[in-house]
Design a protein around this nucleic acid. Structure first.
Lengths: 182, 182
DNA sequence: CGGTATCGATACCAGCGGTAGCGAAATGTG
DNA sequence: CACATTTCGCTACCGCTGGTATCGATACCG
């Protein structure tokens, strides 16, 4: 199942360093100024190595985010509490250095790039939506709406103010969405 | 008050054509591929003419959006109905061709550009927030939160699906935010 | 050993946002 | 009319960016 065939020199295991350098660079310089050249040199790696592993800057950032955010943690059976936990978890993730900016950047790249948009949907939208559907027991459209509200609100606040949402506003958001799972 | 002094050749009144060409180009090609060169040639104008009127691509798009969206229309005195009207108005505006994509693009440019971010805040955030505060009679922080939820949700849906929100979801959003003005 | 694939390095390309400099065309003023 | 002033379109240019091509060197497998 794992590596049935591998002729030739194996890939050096520097994915973690590349991901770390990506987040660090985006955090320091913002999405646009975090060029692939800079990310590569921050990771101690040649630019060609990055392009051998990911086909574009957008997909590199998406993979980096996927690695950094990880799957939705398991939660209690109570739907309302589960949604509150999920929202708090998402707000904390987006607030981590570099993640919010990277997300906003790759998101807006995706508006003009159908291929990247599909990567985003299959790599983020679908897994979290399915996990939430499982936990909350709601139809797909309703869960998609909740995702739009939560992620959209968090990203908008992050982009405008440069700071993640305060706990107080996250609580307000949770209270607001409560009726949708009742 | 108007043009007290004007030596030299006056500016040709092509702002409207430039704005129209900008929206059209963004709608057809997306924010990134809507280059200033293309916008200029679509408007029948030299690129230098555009840069003589706006200092950057981001500020051109912001001015174009400001012109296209316009001020929040007056509304009834009932806060709840006023908010519903405002949300529906915003959803309709963001759904118009080019506007949603332009907004998402300039928004994410602003994440990496403090100057553009300030233009965005003073040109959009402040006026609509103040108008809403006036109508809804709520404190600034609460109105800012509402703006984050509404604009964030609309832009996220627009960016992911490429289509504006359906009326059904807009109604759900309105119902959701109802408690905040009660 | 040979075959294969990755490595860093370098050079390169097209396209982008933005600027400089040109002569020509409009204006108001004397 | 001449003149100063400003904008016009045009062309050329700059630095940077995402992305590609090519190279010899290196690491693995059989």
């Amino acid at each position: 199942m794992d590596s049935p065939r591998s002729p030739g020199r194996p890939r050096s295991s520097v994915d973690a360093e590349i991901f770390a350098a990506t987040l660090r660079t985006v955090h320091e310089l913002g999405y646009t100024r975090a060029t692939v050249d800079r990310i590569a040199s921050a990771a101690g790696v040649a630019k060609t190595t990055i392009y051998r592993r990911w086909p574009s800057k957008g997909e590199l950032i998406a993979a980096c985010l996927s690695d950094a955010v990880g799957p939705l943690p398991a939660s209690t059976g109570d739907p309302r509490e589960a949604m509150a936990t999920a929202i708090r978890w998402g707000a904390a993730k987006i607030g981590q250095p570099g993640i919010g900016a990277a997300f906003a950047g790759v998101f807006t790249d995706a508006v003009s790039d159908a291929a990247l948009r599909e990567v985003l949907v299959t790599q983020f939208q679908d897994p979290y939506r399915i996990a939430l559907q499982d936990i909350l027991g709601l139809p797909e459209k309703r869960v998609l709406f909740i995702v739009d509200v939560v992620i959209g609100t968090l990203l908008h606040r992050m982009g405008i103010s440069g700071e993640p949402m305060v706990d107080d506003d996250v609580d307000t958001l949770i209270d607001l969405l409560g009726p949708l799972v009742a």
